[in-house]
């Protein structure tokens, strides 16, 4: 089979398909009709504060926020949930890691207004009452931190890693935890805490 030629042929064939099959739009409308119908459809809000409801650790919080407020700043400056840390505010350190619908994300690059409708879990929502999450306890046991500043992000990332069912050999855990920088250098202890927790729940 000739690699380039076939592809080019298929590309032409593909582009000749009706648009609806390609982009999955409402098949009842033609492209033109959709364009016309849509001109005034998006409704813009802001830049002044708008109502934003965040579901954090199982509780809804009704806020008035400018659209530019990040989830991280909403948590820290508006909701007093300062366990989620600001280490870089640029998506380069992982200190702000929270779970959005169970998946780990950087709160610093998430607009609060876009986090609506998602279930946000922060470090404050991990323990049940006095009962620490097993990974929290394992971090203490294995000394998986020193200054503690990256720790909430590490733990949230580790909790996600465990739920993602990634391999938990040492090399894999190191790689899958590399989105969380620890300047104190507790990495091997963090890996040990995660692997011990994985072993326990397996």
């Amino acid at each position: 089979m000739e690699f380039g030629k076939v592809t080019r042929r298929r590309f032409l064939w593909r582009s000749a398909l009706p648009t609806i099959a390609v982009v999955g739009l409402d098949p009842r409308l033609s492209v033109a009709a959709q364009a016309v119908a849509s001109i005034s459809v998006v409704r813009a809000q802001g830049p002044e504060p708008i109502p934003v409801t965040l579901n954090v650790n199982g509780k809804p919080h009704a806020l008035q926020l400018e659209p530019r407020v990040t989830l991280l700043d909403a948590l820290r400056e508006r909701l007093g949930l300062t366990g989620t840390k600001k280490g870089c505010d640029q998506g380069t350190c992982g200190a702000c890691t929270v779970l959005a619908d169970g998946r780990r994300v950087n709160a610093c690059l998430t607009l609060a207004v876009m986090a609506q409708g998602k279930s946000i879990t922060t470090i404050e929502g991990l323990a049940s009452g006095d009962q620490l999450h097993p990974l929290q306890a394992a971090f203490i046991e294995h000394d998986g931190f020193q200054c503690g500043y990256c720790t909430p992000g590490q733990i949230m990332s580790g909790v996600a890693l465990l739920s993602e069912k990634r391999p938990t050999d040492e090399t894999s855990v190191r790689e899958w935890m590399s989105g969380n920088i620890c300047r104190c250098g507790a990495y091997p202890n963090i890996v040990a805490a995660i692997r011990a927790t994985a072993g326990r729940s397996a």
Partner: peptide, 19 residues
């Protein structure tokens, strides 16, 4: 970060039109 308006697009066509 500058102040901006924010809109959610619910279909492709309106997204295209708005941008």
């Amino acid at each position: 970060m500058n102040a901006f308006r924010y809109a959610q697009a619910h279909d492709v066509a309106s997204a295209l039109a708005s941008v």
